[in-house]
Write a protein that binds this DNA or RNA. Structure first.
Length: 394
DNA sequence: TACATACAC
DNA sequence: TATGGTGTATGTA
């Protein structure tokens, strides 16, 4: 009944390497998992993980028995879909920006010797993040350093410099604010922005307000005549003219160009790269920001068809809010992609709570929040004494 | 209400 | 030697 094979399989789903992240494609999973397993076996953590795994398996068993007993019930899913479809909002331009391997990138910037080595930030007990070189060995955020060392003996582990990351984060947030003063920070290294208003204004901006010099810090190139009032923080001392020194880049007025410009300014200011996603809602923007990481961006056009094309083959696990447990429960129902999620709504509405299946339905339709709300989270953020460690800012 | 689970960073 | 800390949301007893 217990079945060692079964519990071992199940354990792997919790303990095994999570390669669902950028920079970890094409690894030798079996080899890596064996090392992780060997290092973990017998520990209290291991025993606890096995226990939790069995609980999830029981939950799935219960769900499957329930499913087998289902009678053909009619539900009004079609009607709800239609209502949601009518309310679909495509008019906002939502951006999710995410710094690439943030802590590791800061440490590499400040210590060039680390640049070509596999390195991670954290301790022997826990890593906060790793650089892309280390990821080739399966070393990633949320992994204990001692296990990472087994995977990659040459790994350099740098302790956290939290104050430094906070300071850099402030610099990055200054750039965010230029595109959306109400942006929503999710952690030190990532945020949601609604750049709809910015884009409206930007339409009327002259090129000079969209021009940036490669070597200079964050200020548009100064030309003699045009609205200098708008550049309060530009240095009046040395107005750099196009062609005088570094190359001047002119950014366009489209959403993609605005975001390219924002990433350019972040890099000029901090020497760190960011990735971004542009989409009509937060759920999609978040997925998009991961698509061309590191140092890239991806956008979904504000059209229903573009959204549905994007959603179709998207693995459900990529969606924020779908974690490993939900992934496994859905997998037991042969649901792996968002399209399959949509096809199975009838069953899902019977097996899951109302809030859960409503959420699933929204995902399957490519819907998400179109207003970023800061007021709700702001008090919580200000109370916080220490920022939680981002364990997956890759 | 209190506690447990899932999820995010 | 060693597998985080904190907040939110949701479900259940």
């Amino acid at each position: 009944m217990d079945g060692t094979a079964d519990s071992r399989e199940g354990m792997l789903s919790r303990m095994a390497l999570n390669d669902n992240k950028a920079g970890m494609e094409g690894l030798d999973r079996d080899k890596i998992n064996n090392i992780i397993l060997e290092a973990s076996k017998g520990s209290r953590f291991y025993v606890n993980e096995v226990k939790k795994e069995q609980q999830v398996n029981e939950r799935i068993g219960k769900m499957m028995r329930h499913k087998a007993k289902l009678t053909e019930q009619q539900i009004q899913k079609a009607q709800l879909s239609a209502e949601l479809e009518m309310g679909r909002e495509l008019g906002r331009v939502i951006v999710h920006v995410d710094m690439d391997a943030f802590y590791a990138a800061v440490e590499m910037r400040d210590c060039p010797e680390l640049k070509d080595k596999p390195m991670a930030v954290g301790s022997m007990s826990m890593l906060s993040t790793s650089n892309y070189h280390a990821r080739r060995y399966g070393v990633r955020a949320a992994m204990p350093g001692f296990i990472a060392k087994k995977l990659c003996p040459n790994l350099v582990i740098v302790p956290l410099n939290f104050d430094k990351y906070t300071a850099v984060s402030e610099q990055v947030r200054e750039v965010f604010a230029a595109y959306d003063p109400h942006f929503l920070p999710m952690s030190l290294d990532e945020a949601y922005l609604d750049i709809t208003e910015h884009l409206h204004e930007r339409q009327h901006w002259p090129e000079s307000m969209r021009s940036y010099k490669s070597c200079d810090n964050e200020v548009p190139v100064e030309t003699d005549n045009l609205s200098p009032v708008l550049f309060e923080d530009s240095p009046s001392s040395s107005p750099s003219l196009p062609g005088s020194d570094g190359k001047v880049e002119v950014f366009g007025t489209s959403p993609e160009e605005a975001v390219r410009e924002m990433r350019f300014r972040i890099e000029q200011k901090t020497s760190l790269t960011a990735s971004a996603g542009i989409a009509p809602n937060m759920m999609l923007a978040k997925v998009c920001s991961d698509k061309n990481k590191p140092n890239g961006q991806y956008s979904i056009l504000p059209e229903r068809q573009a959204v549905m094309d994007f959603i179709r083959d998207l693995p459900v696990r990529k969606v924020s809010g779908i974690g490993k447990v939900t992934e496994k429960m859905l997998a037991a129902l042969d649901i792996f992609t968002c399209a399959q999620l949509g096809q199975q709504m009838r069953v899902l509405s019977l097996l899951f709570s109302e809030t859960s299946w409503h959420h699933f339905l929204q995902i399957s339709l490519g819907l998400g929040s179109t207003r970023i709300e800061r007021c709700v989270t702001l008090p919580a953020l200000s109370i916080r004494v220490t920022e939680p460690l981002p364990l997956s800012e890759m």
